[in-house]
């Protein structure tokens, strides 16, 4: 390879250009890169402030009803009558008063019920998956959890409606019980219990996935040290591994709670669509009474959107949902933040 040839091919930067200092400052489409960066930044900021747009619009539409109802929105019932009233007398000021206590209670009850299932069966499954599962079963079980988490909520609703609800009405509700309760509410199987079961099936997999990740990333050295001290595997799990994974488990539970609060369709299918406040005085029948959550109210009453008062009432439900989910997100951020700075898995 002769030197002449080399110079012939090296045409990209002329030999002489190097000795002129202008080479290093030669304009090289200087603005294009900057403009791209600015466009990227603008789109990023837009994705980030989208949440504020959502909050602003939802809350501003909710203000008429929230203003007119004041605290009675949270502390009094009668949603269904209020809604019918607003629908019939469209536009009158008096129709702006709503009481959403049963809806809020329904949301809290279904969500906390589902969380109880999560923290028992779900945590059990997470421990099984990450600590006890035989190797051949691990892959199938992981896929199972992921697929369960991917099943659309409407399918859980359908299964709840076709299996859980008939089961409850057939085996748990006797004829005399439903006759006794007929004055208060219809007992047809669509109930708080059905809602809790369906919701647990939905949020369980999400919780299991996060909790088992947290358990797996608990430092191995603790586990080995504990086993070496002669503690049994089970004691090690309870005393060493679960405490080490606590933050991740809590973050998973919070995330699951957020999903549960916001679930609309499946619950609208199985909880009875009545703004009824279950009465603990009825004993265990409490769980068999129909309820309705804030989210499913928006689905059930969606036709009311054309009337301003009804629309505002639904947005009031929406803003309660939104605010609680925002708070939960912030909470879970705190816990997953601790997880990261706690130096569990990565440096």
């Amino acid at each position: 390879m002769g030197k002449m040839e080399l110079e012939n091919v090296s045409v990209i930067i002329p030999e002489k250009a190097s000795s002129t200092t202008g080479f290093f400052t030669k304009p090289r489409k200087p603005f294009k890169e900057k403009i791209i960066e600015i466009i990227l930044l603008l789109l990023t900021v837009l994705s980030s402030i989208l949440i504020f747009f959502v909050m602003f619009f939802v809350i501003s539409k909710a203000i008429p009803v929230l203003k007119a109802s004041g605290f009675s929105f949270v502390f009094s019932g009668g949603w269904d009558e209020n809604f019918l009233n607003a629908w019939q007398t469209s536009g009158e000021q008096s129709a702006l008063k709503f009481g959403a206590l049963p809806l809020i209670a329904g949301t809290v009850l279904t969500t906390s019920g589902a969380l109880v299932f999560c923290l028992t069966f779900g945590l059990g499954c997470a421990i099984f998956l990450s600590e006890m599962c035989p190797a051949w079963l691990r892959k199938p079980l992981e896929s199972t959890v992921r697929l369960l988490a991917a099943i659309p909520s409407v399918i859980y609703g359908l299964i709840g409606l076709m299996i859980v609800v008939p089961f409850i009405s057939k085996h748990l509700i006797s004829n005399e019980l439903s006759l006794r309760m007929i004055k208060i509410c219809a007992l047809d199987g669509t109930s708080l219990l059905a809602g809790i079961i369906v919701l647990s099936m939905m949020i369980g997999p999400i919780f299991i996935a996060m909790a088992s990740d947290a358990i797996k990333s608990a430092p191995k050295i603790y586990k080995e040290a504990s086993l070496a001290l002669g503690l049994s595997h089970w004691r090690t799990i309870v005393k060493i591994i679960l405490p080490a994974a606590r933050n991740g488990i809590v973050a998973g539970a919070i995330l699951a709670a957020g999903r549960a609060i916001g679930e609309a369709i499946a619950l609208s299918m199985v909880t009875g669509s009545v703004a009824n406040l279950p009465n603990p005085a009825h004993g265990l029948v409490f769980f068999l009474e129909p309820v309705r959550t804030l989210a499913s109210t928006i689905v059930d009453n969606a036709e009311g959107m054309s009337v301003a008062a009804c629309e505002s009432a639904l947005f009031a439900c929406g803003s309660f949902l939104l605010l609680s989910c925002v708070l939960l997100s912030l909470f879970s951020r705190i816990f997953s933040g601790n997880l990261r700075t706690g130096g569990v898995s990565d440096k």
Partner: peptide, 25 residues
């Protein structure tokens, strides 16, 4: 940091809320 938080919160917003937001807009 704030930008990430905003996006993070967005991922926790229930779809029903997006739905009424879309309608409102």
């Amino acid at each position: 940091g704030p930008i990430r938080t905003g996006i993070d919160i967005l991922s926790g917003v229930p779809t029903i809320v997006f739905a009424i937001f879309g309608l409102a807009i």
